[in-house]
């Protein structure tokens, strides 16, 4: 039987700014098995565990890190943690990003959503995937992990709403700028190709089927980015967040509305047994979509199934 609960010692605390902290825990099994986009559920002083996307793993030292923003009492408690304290951690949990078959990856992140993107960038780099990341913040004082993003990604564009650093605007503006630059470079390389072989080479360097957009951040940001990806024909995966209790799929509280697969209509299977009875059954008004569990089927979903 698999082990789900791990005792993890806090070994490092890095303050990124007053309200953001990176906590590093010891756990060989979590660092060995975690995939980008997965999360852990950690028990602090609050009643329920808190789910956090895994921000970094270091397999050689058997550690993993979580980025935490101070929101309310539950998250604030993690700012008072002490090195060498022991924490009960469930994980790694959920379904992460699918990187198989990708060669070029566009990424958009904002808010606490940028933490799991560190792990994603590192993994993509190991797999030889070219990455372009766009992040957005309110102002220069809110900017997080810019150095790391710049170091790990092949292309990085930062936006702030007040324009105090990077381009002025939202993460979406930064994403569109990265995309435009990418397309222009591609066209220029193609036009400058001297032979047909060169043209083939350039053409091969960008295939839409091997290119994707991954999103992690505030809901409206991801919704907008997913619409944009659909317009230009890029596959898109989004990492969603929902209030959660157990983290392991048993309580059904972290419901995410997803489009129903026509074949998956369960009610059909009882047609035989219930057919004659159906007249007497009060048929309830049920929504058109289904509810998946953010903690098991997610947190990463293909954007096209999400009922925004």
């Amino acid at each position: 039987m698999k082990k789900i609960e791990h005792d993890c010692i806090l070994i490092k605390k890095t303050f990124l700014n007053q309200d953001n902290i990176l906590l590093t825990f010891q756990s060989q099994i979590i660092s060995d098995t975690a995939q980008p986009g997965q999360f852990v559920a950690i028990k602090g002083p609050a009643f329920l565990r808190r789910p956090f996307g895994i921000a970094q793993v270091d397999r050689s030292s058997g550690t993993f890190s979580l980025g935490i923003r101070k929101k309310a009492a539950g998250t604030a408690a993690f700012f008072n943690t002490k090195i060498s304290d022991n924490y009960s951690v469930l994980g790694p949990l959920g379904h992460g990003f699918e990187l198989d078959g990708l060669e070029t990856l566009f990424i958009i992140g904002g808010g606490t959503g940028i933490y799991p993107l560190l792990f994603l960038l590192e993994t993509a780099r190991e797999k030889g995937i070219t990455t372009y990341i766009a992040t957005g913040f309110r102002s220069s004082t809110d900017v997080l992990l810019a150095e790391e993003m710049n170091r790990l990604a092949d292309g990085f564009c930062l936006a702030t709403e007040d324009g105090s650093t990077g381009i002025k605007g939202f993460a979406q503006n930064a994403l569109e700028k990265l995309w435009l630059d990418f397309c222009n470079n591609y066209r220029r390389d193609f036009d400058n190709s001297k032979s047909d072989d060169d043209k083939d080479l350039v053409e091969h360097s960008f295939e839409k089927s091997k290119t994707a957009l991954f999103c992690c951040g505030p809901h409206p940001m991801m919704q907008k980015a997913a619409m944009w990806a659909k317009q230009i024909g890029l596959q898109c995966q989004v990492s969603l967040e929902e209030r959660m209790a157990c983290g392991i799929g048993i309580c059904r509280t972290c419901a995410v509305a997803v489009k129903r697969e026509p074949d998956a209509e369960v009610i059909k299977t009882d047609a035989g047994a219930i057919k004659n009875e159906i007249d007497t059954v009060v048929v309830r008004q049920e929504p058109e979509f289904d509810y998946d569990r953010c903690c098991v089927e997610g947190p990463v979903f293909p954007a096209e199934v999400v009922e925004w």
């Binding site: 609050a46 009643f47 329920l48 539950g74 929902e242 209030r243 959660m244 209790a245 309580c251 059904r252 509280t253 972290c254 419901a255 995410v256 509305a257 369960v266 009610i267 009882d270 219930i274 059954v281 048929v283 309830r284 049920e286 929504p287 979509f289 289904d290 509810y291």
Partner: peptide, 20 residues
């Protein structure tokens, strides 16, 4: 018959417990 349940949020933490 199958039931889809309520829209999220379906859980809220409170003192020494939770609401679902």
């Amino acid at each position: 018959l199958p039931r889809k349940g309520n829209p999220a949020p379906r859980v809220a933490e409170c003192d020494c417990g939770m609401l679902n």
